[in-house]
Amino acid sequence: MQGTNLKKENDWFDRPASRRLLWRLLYGACAVSVLLEIVLIATHQRHGHFGEGWPDGWWFFYALLGFIACSLMILVAKGLGAWLKRPEDYYAETEETTLPEDIDESLR
């Protein structure tokens, strides 16, 4: 795939500099979303829906929920994967030798 068309190709996302920029943007966006809540708290607009004592009124509740819930789900999936994952030929199905008819004709 090292052809002449490689030059005009858009490879922005493969560049290390772009990746660094994207990481900074991600951290920045997280920081902004948390900072905005501080503005809410300062202007007394931060209320829980369930009333006093319920966790959804805690400061930075949604940031915590997002972080913890997603980490947990990935860990649980990883753990279950060790138990549930099988090789692709587990059910011993016949693999197609030709591409199905719904695939682009030029590939066949």
Binding site: S33, E37, H47, F61, L64, G66, C70
Partner: peptide, 19 residues
Amino acid sequence: VPHVIAQAQLLMLSALVFF
């Protein structure tokens, strides 16, 4: 405004966890 900020927090932190 609070809803948008809450949703943004939830999603941005999820994205962070993914990467």
